[in-house]
Write a protein that binds this DNA or RNA. Structure first.
Lengths: 350, 350
DNA sequence: TTGAAAGCGCTAACAT
DNA sequence: ATGTTAGCGCTTTCAA
């Protein structure tokens, strides 16, 4: 391995001169720089990253901490960020937490000890105090979920608006008994979404507690079970709104298993637009999330931020809107008509 | 950041004692080790990788190089590997190549200069020579795709068998004009799958060239276009077999757009079992791939291999079988019957 | 069984 | 414009 010393010896100069020349320090003469770079090239010199990192310079690694990469949602984020960071010369280090705060802590510890340039995190419900402390040591930004303790750098979507639009759509179609299956409100996203549901219902329908089913947002099974509970209610809802991607999956599975047909027997609005949602029944009406754009924006901002190397983290918040994608799984409540069936089929292939 | 010195100061011992205790050096008494590890845990000590790397030890980073994480297929792999490596104390560095050999080279270069413990790679069709050279410098293993130049460490699925089973299933149902839409045969997986198709057809039907459509395996659009071409043939096929996940997506989209109904108008067998494939029409009959198990096996083997730190890379090959998942999108060719329609609906919810 | 001390390759404060 | 020197945190001799 060729070191800075080898080059120095060969040129009869001091190691620091070589180091500075290579770093393009203004105090070094052009002639010397010229000679140094040439010899370095000739000898096949490659800077030792480890040594450089020991001197406090952070690596070109950016940690991405999220619950589960198998969620198409997060995969899109990872992809967009990867592209973004790659073109800026950074590498992505992936850590999955499974929404477990201790795993999260462990991951953040490892990243911190690897001297990462920064951390992009989708935090768990209640991050460990140590996690928060460690995050503050390097540039960081929260994605989707925002935890006050972690900081004011956040890129997210307007969760309240998203579910508000989904629910309003159903209200406008004439639905009054609308079920909501979503994440518990200990997660900021969960409570924001629930708020959107209640807001849309305000003044239109009484919020019947039994119609609201809250569970761990990443549990597909909960979505299925909650659907079963809603359907077996004395007065079942005429429509269901999903409050997370996995819940949506559970709901769709359960409806299929029970032979419940949308939109004839029940209207359904999903959350997120995963692969296959448009294939479900007559096409799933769902809340489209601008994940790709969100992640790209986050990546760009982050690179800029890291480059500044400013310890002074100025607060920054970006809220992207979600948009309702209307397909065939929603229509006005009541028995089906020929035209409505045909319309919903068209929706599926649109 | 907590260092070895901090622990030493707290315990009133020398830094070297702490270092040795942490390294489980036989010369340190059990009692000391006990105390050291406990305090280390308490203080949240994490070894500084940079410093360790300077001493010649490679990092705890394992590079994962693959085409596109958005492919559910690769997301599953990343997840399984992440779990596996995490529990062994390794971190995953994710690099996406988009099947571009120059991007691949760039990624591998970065990983190599970061002193990664090893690299797990799904290689592009024709990796750069430099890529191959760099890979040989650290422990590495190929996943899914196998390139002879890169080496004999490979975990993959039996691609030939996978498509053979898919095609045979159709042949047994009575199909004779079977279309195949898959990846070009410059990729080892592509040619193996094509081989499976031809093998299943041997002696049963003449392999009509127009029925075989080959393109870049990751292009959804190619799948859609190829489907259009097959359907507009003078004598269109009665069934189609997909040879990649994205092709499957394209095919499904196109059939939906054209209003072609499976299995009445056409039988379809997909590749992989992505979210939503079971929701498509009467449920997609498809080739299920043991991706999770494959990745886990690969991860375990890799960790073991890296731990051995053996420069002597003994050849190792693992071939996992794929299994056909029969749902509603396939049946015998010809006009529909009442019973067959009912049967296919049952298949969808099974 | 433990401590002291010498570096690994690089950077940066301090001297020329 | 360049040289000297002192570490960064860890491992690893060499001493005790």
């Amino acid at each position: 391995m060729v070191t800075i010393k080898d080059i120095a010896a060969r040129l009869q100069v001091s190691p620091s001169t070589v180091g500075r020349a290579l770093a393009d320090d203004p105090r070094i003469s052009a002639a010397t720089k010229q000679k140094v770079t040439q010899v370095a090239d000739e000898m096949g010199y490659v800077a030792n990253l480890a040594a450089r990192m020991m001197r406090g310079v952070s690596s070109n690694l950016v940690g991405l901490v999220l619950p589960d990469i198998r969620n198409g949602f997060y995969a899109t984020i990872a992809h967009a960020l990867s592209k973004c960071l790659q073109s800026a010369g950074y590498q992505l280090a992936l850590s999955e937490t499974d929404d477990d705060r201790m795993v999260e802590l462990q991951s953040v510890r490892e990243l911190a000890s690897a001297n990462v340039a920064g951390i992009i995190i989708v935090p768990t419900a209640k991050p460990h105090r140590e996690t928060v402390r460690l995050l503050k040591l390097s540039p960081h930004v929260q994605l989707l979920r925002k935890h006050a303790a972690i900081g004011d750098q956040w890129f997210g979507i307007d969760d309240t608006l998203a579910i508000f639009e989904a629910t309003s759509h159903l209200v406008q179609l004439g639905h009054r008994r609308i079920g909501y299956i979503g994440g518990t409100d200990d997660l900021p996203t969960g409570s924001a979404r629930l708020k959107g549901y209640h807001k849309a219902l305000a003044g239109v329908a009484s919020g019947e507690p039994a119609l609201v089913q809250l569970g761990a947002p990443s549990e597909v099974d909960f979505g299925a079970n909650a659907t079963r509970r809603l359907l077996s209610l004395p007065k079942p809802p005429t429509a269901i709104v999903a409050g997370s991607v996995q819940m949506t999956q559970g709901i769709l599975e359960e409806l299929l298993a029970q032979g419940v047909r949308a939109p004839d027997d029940l209207s359904v609005v999903g959350f997120g637009d995963e692969l296959g949602f448009r294939w479900w029944g007559p096409g799933l009406t769902t809340v489209g999330l601008p994940v790709h754009d969100l992640a790209t924006a986050c990546g760009l901002w982050f690179v800029h931020h890291v480059r500044q190397n400013s310890a002074t983290a100025s607060p920054y918040t970006s809220i992207s809107p979600a948009t309702l994608i209307v397909r065939g799984s929603t229509r006005k409540p009541g028995p089906p008509t020929k035209t409505s069936v045909r319309a919903s089929l068209r929706g599926a292939t649109a």
